[in-house]
């Protein structure tokens, strides 16, 4: 961090604290001085934790990993928006220069029945893994792979599949949806496979299985508000949800299972 010390900020933070899954939890106020505008939001949280450890020995638990905006681990509701107010930005890529000295910042965990809070700002996003396990893969035979160049893929589909594959599974779509619906995530996974010849074969059965699992896990229903698209750090489009709706309908009409 090559910050300019004269520009440091003082912040009032309201952070959700919850000891464990059984604890009721509450919002706790903290004051943090000396925040550099060049810090990322997570570095600011690290600074707060250093202070808390020195003072009380009880740091705030939050998920983080790559801090490069690609792993999907950081997951914070910042001032009421998933990953904060910046478009297509993960919490780790959100910089403190986007805030002002004296600001009050509210930090909460993702809220959804399917994402139970484990501790403080950490939630269990295992529900996404369960949905993936229900069908988010391509079955392949063992043996020698065929020549990759023998499978033709149109440029447009390759681009659309790649756009859908940009989903990092962070759960911001669920967090930002007023209904806690997971349809943007599920549709991105369905689309990235349905658009390519290797995944297209099983697309209808996959869609039925993944949607059924999503429903079973207690996610809400989509009301086409597109707030998920707006708050998605990777800009996944709700056009994918329409594709999933089409695939699901085709599957519902034709499935023999």
């Amino acid at each position: 961090m090559g910050g300019n010390n004269s520009d440091t900020m003082s912040l009032n933070l309201k952070v959700w604290r919850q000891k464990n899954n059984k604890d009721k939890g509450s919002m706790i106020d903290y004051k943090l001085d000396g925040v550099s505008p060049d810090m990322s939001f997570l570095e600011m949280m690290d600074t707060l934790n250093n202070k808390l450890i020195k003072e009380q020995g009880d740091s705030i638990a939050f998920d983080h990993d790559c801090r490069e905006g690609i792993c999907g681990m950081c997951s914070m509701m910042i001032n009421g928006q998933a990953h904060g107010p910046e478009a297509e930005t993960t919490t780790c890529q959100l910089h403190m220069r986007k805030f002002k000295d004296g600001d009050t910042i509210v930090v909460e965990p993702w809220r959804a029945k399917a994402f139970p809070v484990l501790k403080d700002l950490m939630v269990d996003r295992g529900a996404f893994d369960n949905i993936m396990a229900a069908g988010g893969f391509v079955n392949v035979n063992t043996g020698n792979p065929q020549d990759a160049n023998s499978i033709l893929i149109g440029q447009e589909n390759a681009e659309l599949a790649m756009d859908a594959a940009a989903c990092i599974g962070c759960g911001a779509c669920v967090a930002s949806c007023k209904n806690a619906s997971a349809m943007l995530f599920v549709s991105a996974k369905i689309s990235q496979l349905a658009l390519l010849p290797q995944g297209e074969v099983e697309s209808l059965a996959r869609t039925q299985a993944m949607v059924a699992k999503m429903d079973e896990l207690g996610f809400g229903n989509c009301t086409n508000e597109a707030e998920c698209e707006a708050q998605c750090p990777k800009g996944i489009k709700i056009e994918n949800i329409a594709r999933m709706n089409r695939e699901w309908f085709k599957g519902a009409l034709t499935s023999r299972k």
């Binding site: 919002m27 928006q81 509210v106 959804a112 029945k113 996610f219 707030e227 708050q231």
Partner: peptide
Amino acid sequence: AARPVSYHMRETS
């Protein structure tokens, strides 16, 4: 039911 605990603060983008 899908969000039993609501947010302390929720803003739309």
